[in-house]
């Protein structure tokens, strides 16, 4: 959390060119993640004969695994600081938030630390995802039948 606050402070005092630089970096890195994802999907489809949906599901697991591993090894925090939205907006960001909370709070014990703080960062994504998905699905079946 400290790092984010620091980042916010920095971005408040940086001139406008830096904002554009950040946005371009986010575009390039985010694009690269999507591109690599597509490459992995193509490999899974061609070499393993998977359907598109199955390949995308495997891609999701692969991305989560890689991001979690990079977080556990200590690389990912630096990468996110540099690449920002390019890495936290894809599924990698979700995996990063779960893994970093798990690593950080484990010292407080398995129940009071790891267990209760596991979703400290990723919880809002799940909560607002479920709330919006649920009510929009109700609206959807009413309108579209």
């Amino acid at each position: 959390m400290r790092k984010e606050e620091y980042q916010k402070l920095v971005s408040e005092y940086t001139p406008k060119e830096n904002k554009w630089k950040n946005a371009v970096i986010a575009f390039l890195v985010g694009g690269l993640v999507g591109f690599l994802g597509q490459v992995i999907v193509a490999i899974l489809q061609n070499s393993f004969g998977m359907e598109t949906t199955e390949a995308c599901s495997w891609l999701c697991v692969i991305m989560i695994f890689l991001a979690s591993l990079a977080t556990a090894l200590g690389f990912f925090d630096n990468w996110v600081t540099k690449c920002k939205a390019g890495l936290f907006l894809p599924t990698t960001g979700f995996a990063h938030s779960v893994t970093s909370a798990a690593l950080d709070y484990r010292k407080d014990g398995f129940i009071t630390g790891l267990g209760s703080s596991f979703f400290k960062l990723a919880g809002s994504v799940i909560l607002y995802g479920i709330i919006s998905g649920f009510f929009l699905a109700i609206l959807g079946v009413i309108i579209y039948g």
């Binding site: 694009g31 993640v33 999507g34 999907v41 995308c56 907006l89 894809p90 599924t91």
Partner: peptide, 8 residues
């Protein structure tokens, strides 16, 4: 394709 499915 995957560019849309990898996003949150």
């Amino acid at each position: 394709g995957a560019g849309a499915t990898v996003l949150i």
